[in-house]
Write a protein that binds this DNA or RNA. Sequence first.
DNA 1: GTCTATATGTTGATAGAC
DNA 2: GTCTATCAACATATAGAC
Lengths: 232, 232
Amino acid sequence: MVKQVSKSPPRARGGVPYVTTSPAELDGDTEQRILDAAHTVFMKTGTAGARMQEIAREAGVNSALLHYYFRSKDRLAEAVFHRAAGQLLPAVAGVLASDRPLAEKVRAIVEIELDRLSRTPYLPAYIISELAHHPERITHFISALTGSQPDALGRRLLRVVGGQIDEEVRARRMRPIAPEQFLVNLLSLCIFPFAARPMISAMMGLDDKAFARFIRERREKLPDFFLNALRP
Amino acid sequence: MVKQVSKSPPRARGGVPYVTTSPAELDGDTEQRILDAAHTVFMKTGTAGARMQEIAREAGVNSALLHYYFRSKDRLAEAVFHRAAGQLLPAVAGVLASDRPLAEKVRAIVEIELDRLSRTPYLPAYIISELAHHPERITHFISALTGSQPDALGRRLLRVVGGQIDEEVRARRMRPIAPEQFLVNLLSLCIFPFAARPMISAMMGLDDKAFARFIRERREKLPDFFLNALRP
DNA sequence: GTCTATATGTTGATAGAC
DNA sequence: GTCTATCAACATATAGAC
């Protein structure tokens, strides 16, 4: 029942120099292949619905190897989630924390996020679903977003953006809005269409191509929509 | 393997007159209690993660009864999803289809949706997660939304709203926007905060109370934000 | 590191008494 | 309609050979 905590993972990846690509390394080493396979399967079925067997098949290895590298399904799930979480927002956080003008930030975020999500469209649904069923993974989500404590980053971003909003308001270039609402509005408009894609596509009768077109139009029009909302 | 299709469900609910509340009916009849319990459990764990046993416990009955009423876990999941899907959007669809002025529709939808979701905050994550893992349930989602064919309702709404937008644009009261973008923007702003609640709460350090306050502020400010975005 | 074989525990589902 | 008892099918995880 109680497992020894440190049947240490086979090796820490990273600093091995001068390794002439070994046979296993040809298409990425095994651990990486497993992680990728797990990512694919978890994405499609959700962690609870996924079978270790299928992940092994997808990775082209035996299922015992998954346990050799990741010890348990739950830890594998954590690893995958952690990596996935690192793809949703850190670029956005970087832009927000910078000292560029607010309007420029909005344009940059819309572009960055819509481009990224176009490449990994299932990411939002996966993250949302995972967080709904495993609230304890919020920690992973945050730490994937940054190295700092849970809400330290959030607070910093709110302060920075809040400051910029105040400036704009004082200069009569913007109507007041709470920075929390500002951020949630922006993220909602970027992320939700992907999270709710099946719904949206079905309701409006969009096939894959039409959806892509819809997103391209969005990428172009959304920044103005958002910025107009804040004109005084 | 092949199951006879029609070991018909025990009875069709609905038209039984003059039934002096039988003992079982006192706190809702059994089928209803099971459905409610399943709703709760599926919501929390997701369908794949849920256990029939736990649903039975939650309903206060034996797990064999679940199969008596719903035949299989999958059918129970369908029933729950169908009912849940009917809570997310039909009120919105009703407002959109009406002949009220566009601005009024926006205000009504924000209020209706935020009020409803405040009462059932896990609904969006559940629907999103379920649709991501079971694309085949889109049909249920749509038919729960209306009696009509898959995208018939969507098309009608787009036509109505599109017409109203055109009017407003011609009268120079609104800047042009595709009705698809209009609707997705509105729904994004209403629904996403609930779907991504754990993320948002963690990043901004909101407890339950602060989140509720956040939503109340949103209910008040969102309509103007949205309508301002479309000023010419 | 990677495989085969297997232990161990759940889980959805059914049979049959009441 | 509701319960008890039980089955058959998996799924996760480990042992141990190579």
